[in-house]
Design a protein around this nucleic acid. Structure first.
Length: 751
RNA sequence: GAACGAUUAGCUCAGUUGGUAGAGCGUUCCCUUGACGUGGGAAAGGCCACAGGUUCGAAUCCUGUAUCGUUCACCA
């Protein structure tokens, strides 16, 4: 048999992903098959097909796509494409996250650098305008990048965590929780970020190890007990000294009260006994500073101690004589230490390593301060949920297996976190975000989905999705002659993120989408946000609609560089997925991300690895070229299949079955490896090699049988490979099957 | 301090109910003028961290140790 001469020109050259990929993506978009309803209309999906839903973890609108995004997009797209081809009614809903603090502080930094102006110079309205413009631009960039990766998501349903619909959802949720007594306003010690001028949640803190000095001293010569601290400046705010109840050394002093002047500040401390004190640390006595330490605050609550604030929002001292007053805490520390030495009160100074809590975004050193903030109570029984607490709502579905984590061992981490969970501080003193839907007028408080009456027309003036304006503050209520003023604060960004699975489907409206697609099937995300996000989604969904948000959580690992380091700007070791797509093709990048990457395990990626999969795409290209040379386009009828070929065909069946099993078990790395090996080491190296001999000297029957077999295996292999390398497989498919639907919606070879 | 991982070829990693160790990359040698040099064939290279235990049999299960990593809590 002579090779035919009808091979399309493009196959005479090496595969060119740069030329192909954007064209193929545009074809997919035009086809409408990313949209599950179109799939049904066009008959690609059965009307009664089972739904399969993934909500895309919305990337922050703070910048550009990085390898972590590329990883999540790849894994999700693999699942989505596989399920779509298996016949499911498949929805992948994309979106972006406003990422309140991250976005605002990024814009603030820019403005400060370029214009030397702070947010207070600009004012709320102007700053929000700037942030919104930035968010809009950033959003557009990210969306185009998601497309470059080949993500087959339904753009018609795209959502933003700060658009009008999500704002309504957030406000509705806030009111519901407030009415149920789950949201309360309280004066408690919170984590204050003096640099960002806002509260932050426990899990937004990063502990940084630094050198510190552990000072041991007495408050005064008359005071019987020595204490140790790394922060002597806070000791002017002490209201007690706590010792362990069983500590014989100090038993006689418990219950006594002492007054003295400490560094020119009058101080009164009561000696108390509390279980939380370690007998063996330092002197075994703890100076209790309720206003400036989370644990001390808790001790103070147990013993009803007075709270004395001595440090303000700018981390400066608010008490003392001019030596101390107005000093930054670090300087005040020296002042107090010097005073102690001079007075002969200092007993020892020891250099130690200490973990200093800092704010993740601004790197400001956290100053615990008592402030009036909004909290979510995680321990209050909720009547409408059978008396369960939010903690229980978070715990139960994982415990009874309604939600499965892949890998499973993350369950333990999850439970461990819930056990130590405190009430969630949800108010933030920043401007970009969902403004707290609470209005004040004198003593009156109004909490609602909408502002108090007469205000609603004002607030809804701006309909732009992204440029949603929450700047309206005070409104005159002419009927009553008073003024409603909205709470200045915004909500923690995770409050809206936690609602993502159902808010993006239209809640609080009872939409069709909500009915069909919720609970969603798989949440695919990085394990680093298991607490921030995964737990909050379980909580919010369980509370608001009594449903789990998803059945399965799949954790991908962190993508690291060739040396195992985290990719970061400062190290300059980041690999930009867009550069990769341009140079090697998104297909190659996707394969490199998936290969050798088990769930929850960090992976390393290098240019060499990616290059290898570009070669693979080209290999497939050339396999096609060879087969097209003997293409059985004229073989409309299936020819007689010889023994050898039916063995080959059933071998393929076997491999396809194995790959399908691996996909169903979330072993994407194994599935990818199997199709890769099949195509390269078996199909190309064995089957095609022996085919040369068949076409040279086989019988007419053998030739026809083999031509059919090659074409058949190629076509079916394209399907199996498609979830991993969608572009090159689609490009080949549409070439060899010009009259059929795109590969995107072809039926998977295994049922 | 606690929880949870990891430890397999020079490098990156697979190894899913316990049955004689696998892949890619790299290295070395050879081959190939019609699918592809982005190719093909072959070779070298592992006491599966260590020590015990269970078993006919352990990389795999159990116990302990060491090292690395991640997360949480922090000591004031």
């Amino acid at each position: 048999m002579e090779p035919k001469m009808n091979i399309p020109d493009k196959f005479l050259k090496p595969y060119n992903p740069a030329e192909t990929e954007s064209r193929v993506y545009a074809m997919w978009e035009d086809s409408g098959f990313f949209h599950p309803e179109t799939c049904i209309e066009k008959g690609a999906t059965a009307e009664d097909a089972k739904p399969f839903t993934i909500m895309m973890p919305p990337p922050n609108v703070t910048g550009v796509l990085h390898m972590g995004h590329a990883m999540m997009l790849t894994v999700q797209d693999i699942m989505i494409r596989h399920k779509r081809m298996r016949g499911y009614r498949t929805l992948w809903l994309p979106g972006t996250d406003h990422a309140a603090i991250a976005t605002q502080s990024k814009v603030e930094k820019e403005i400060l650098k370029k214009e030397k102006r702070s947010r207070h110079d600009l004012g709320r309205e102007e700053l929000l305008k700037r942030v919104q413009n930035f968010a809009k631009e950033s959003h557009d960039t990210i969306v185009s990048q998601i497309k470059v990766m080949g993500a087959s998501c339904d753009w018609n349903r795209e959502a933003f965590t700060l658009d009008d619909k999500r704002n309504l959802a957030v406000n509705t949720m806030f009111k519901k929780m407030y009415d149920d007594g789950l949201i309360y306003r309280g004066n408690k010690v919170i984590n204050w970020d003096p640099k960002g001028q806002t509260t932050i949640a426990d899990d937004e803190i990063v502990n940084v190890e630094r050198d510190a000095v552990l000072y041991t001293f007495k408050y005064s010569h008359d005071f019987p007990i020595a204490i140790s601290t790394t922060r002597p400046e806070t000791k002017v705010g002490d209201t007690a000294v706590a010792v362990h109840p069983s500590d014989e050394r100090y038993k006689e002093y418990v219950g006594k009260e002492y007054s003295f002047t400490f560094c020119d500040v009058p101080v009164t401390v009561k000696i108390i006994a509390d279980e939380s004190v370690e007998k063996d640390f330092g002197t075994g006595a703890l100076g209790v500073t309720p206003a400036h330490s989370m644990t001390d605050w808790e001790i103070a609550e147990r013993h009803n101690l007075p709270v004395k604030q001595v440090i303000n929002e700018y981390a400066k001292m608010t008490v003392g004589t001019e030596e101390l007053l107005g000093k930054k805490t670090a300087d005040a520390r020296e002042v107090v230490a010097k005073w102690l030495r001079e007075k002969g009160l200092m007993i020892s100074e020891e250099n130690i390593k200490q973990n200093v809590p800092t704010a993740e975004r601004t790197e400001g050193i956290i100053e615990p301060l008592p402030k009036l903030q909004w909290f979510v109570n995680v321990n209050k029984p909720i009547p409408s949920r059978g008396g369960k607490t939010l903690k229980e709502i978070m715990r139960e579905p994982l415990q009874n297996g309604k939600i499965k984590m892949v890998p499973e061992y993350f369950n333990k981490t999850y439970f461990n976190w819930i056990d130590n969970l405190r009430d969630w501080c949800i108010s933030r003193q920043i401007w970009y975000g969902h403004r707290i839907p609470v209005w004040y007028k004198g003593e009156e408080i109004f909490v609602g989905e909408q502002p108090p009456k007469l205000v609603s027309e004002n607030a809804s003036a701006d309909k732009n999705q992204i440029n949603h304006d929450h700047s309206g503050g005070a409104f005159s209520d002419t009927n009553l002659g008073g003024t409603w003023t909205q709470d200045e604060d915004t909500l923690d960004t995770w409050f809206s993120s936690g609602m993502w699975t159902f808010s993006a489907l239209g809640w609080p409206e009872q939409t069709e989408d909500l009915k069909i697609y919720h609970p969603t099937d798989v949440l695919e995300t990085g394990y680093e946000i298991i607490f921030f996000w995964v737990a909050r989604m379980v909580m919010m969904s369980g509370y608001a609609i009594g449903e789990i948000p998803f059945h399965t959580v799949y954790f991908n690992g962190t993508v690291r560089d060739g040396q195992g380091r985290k990719m970061s700007k400062s190290l300059g070791n980041g690999i930009d997925p867009l550069d990769i797509a341009k140079e090697f093709g998104a297909d190659a990048g996707r394969m490199a991300l998936v290969m050798g990457t088990a769930a929850g395990t960090d992976s390393k990626i290098s240019v060499d690895k990616i290059k290898g999969y570009k070669h693979f795409a080209n290999k497939l290209w050339n396999i096609t070229r060879f087969i097209l040379g003997y293409a059985p386009e004229d073989l409309v009828e299936k020819p007689e299949i010889v023994e050898r070929d039916s063995v080959l065909l059933s071998k393929f069946e076997e491999v396809a079955k194995e790959i399908t099993d691996e996909l169903d078990k979330y072993n994407f790395h194994l599935a990818a490896e199997k199709i890769y090996h099949y195509l390269w080491s078996h199909f190309a190296d064995i089957i095609i090699e022996e085919s040369k001999e068949v076409f040279k000297s086989g019988s007419q029957t053998e030739m026809r049988s083999r031509a059919y077999t090659l074409f058949k295996i190629l076509s079916e292999s394209l399907k199996v490979l498609h979830p991993f390398m969608p572009f090159v497989t689609e490009e080949i498919w549409t070439t060899i099957h010009p009259n059929e639907n795109p590969l995107l919606v072809q039926r998977w070879p295994i049922k």
